[in-house]
Design a binder for these strands. Structure first.
Lengths: 196, 196
DNA sequence: GTCATTCTTGACGAAAGTGTCAAGAATGAA
DNA sequence: TTCATTCTTGACACTTTCGTCAAGAATGAC
């Protein structure tokens, strides 16, 4: 293999992820990626083909990290504690960075109508795997829900997390989002504890 | 006033709303607006200045209609019934059209980082007025919530509606969204009735 | 060390969008 | 009817982005 690649692919994809996270798949340009990575536009075309191919690589890395973190947050405690941990993780995730980067999945989902089937598939993949994780966490914790209820509730929780991502874009602070998340879990799980 | 305008402004704004609703403020072009309205690009620039000015007019009309519809849906019945009516209205609203148009407010919110303060302000305005409507509906219905609880719950409900809008973009059907909404209300409002 | 292969670079042409403008058309007021 | 004003139209200049390509640089295999 002659003419070796002059850049670190892992690093380029990691930087590309950051660019996409900040600007979105649609708004990030090849020039943005070239500037951020220090790799010439032509080299990126040569190495990956087009912007979407870079996005898919970056997104796949992101999805793995994200779902791992979600699984961790959902691993222990009561159902309420698991959901609280999970939602806190989500909120911190979307309010990190300066300025905050928001949620890459949600941003990408909103552009679904101008995205390729590949991209749409990744979004649906992340959301459905997330739903499965949550459903499992709900039904495996000591709780009062049937498997069917757990599935339905999991979808509601996923939907709520997407709402948090929108609210973040609308200007709500980390603190406000955490407060809403706490209210949500409190209302959903309310029992004799009397929260809410 | 000599040289009268050759087009119906109400109609142009209504058509512009449809274009923005389908493509988003950012992705809709002046050429899209010109083609859809039948008014030349130059005339639109002459009449309104730029794309954002047209958007603001269209959005303001949309916001009034939307909030009126929300107030209607939240007007009568138990807290649960009000919320169910309201969420059904929201879901129908975002799944109407072919293909479905989604939610204009949510789409616009997701582009907050490249929008003007005026546009961001409109988004926040709609969301906060919606929150107030819901809070009022919750606390005015025969129910068990304090005013502070109603405020917190209202924000949770607004957040959930934003989540529904994202899920719609991700490919969920009207039926699925309604089902999630029903589960949400059932879980939130659960009492001796035993739903969920 | 030679060489075929691959990568890198900068430039190119095409396409799409923006905002502006001069010239002409249309209109209401007098 | 006349005329000043306003609207309409198509063209223009500018910008951004895209994808490609030829020429040169770098590298691993032999």
């Amino acid at each position: 293999m002659a003419g070796a690649r002059q850049f670190d692919e892992q690093q380029v994809i990691a930087i590309a992820l950051d660019v996409f996270w900040r600007k979105g798949l649609h708004d990030a340009t090849m020039q943005d990626l070239a500037a951020a990575t220090g790799v010439q536009r032509g080299s990126l075309y040569n190495a990956y083909g087009d912007k979407e191919a870079i996005f898919l690589r970056a997104f796949d890395r992101y999805a793995v990290q994200f779902l791992d973190a979600a699984a961790d947050a959902l691993a222990e405690g009561s159902t309420a504690a698991r959901l609280r941990n999970f939602l806190d993780m989500i909120v911190v995730n979307m309010t990190s960075g300066s300025p905050p980067r928001g949620c890459l999945t949600t941003r990408t989902a909103l552009d679904a109508d101008i995205s390729s089937p590949e991209v749409r598939g990744r979004i649906q993949g992340v959301l459905s795997r997330l739903e499965q994780l949550i459903s499992k966490a709900i039904s495996s914790a000591p709780g009062e829900w049937s498997a069917a209820d757990a599935n339905r509730l999991a979808r509601v929780v996923v939907t709520f997390t997407r709402g948090l991502a929108v609210m973040e874009r609308a200007g709500y602070s980390r603190k406000q989002l955490k407060e809403s998340a706490a209210t949500f879990v409190g209302a959903l799980m309310r029992d004799a504890s009397g929260t809410l």
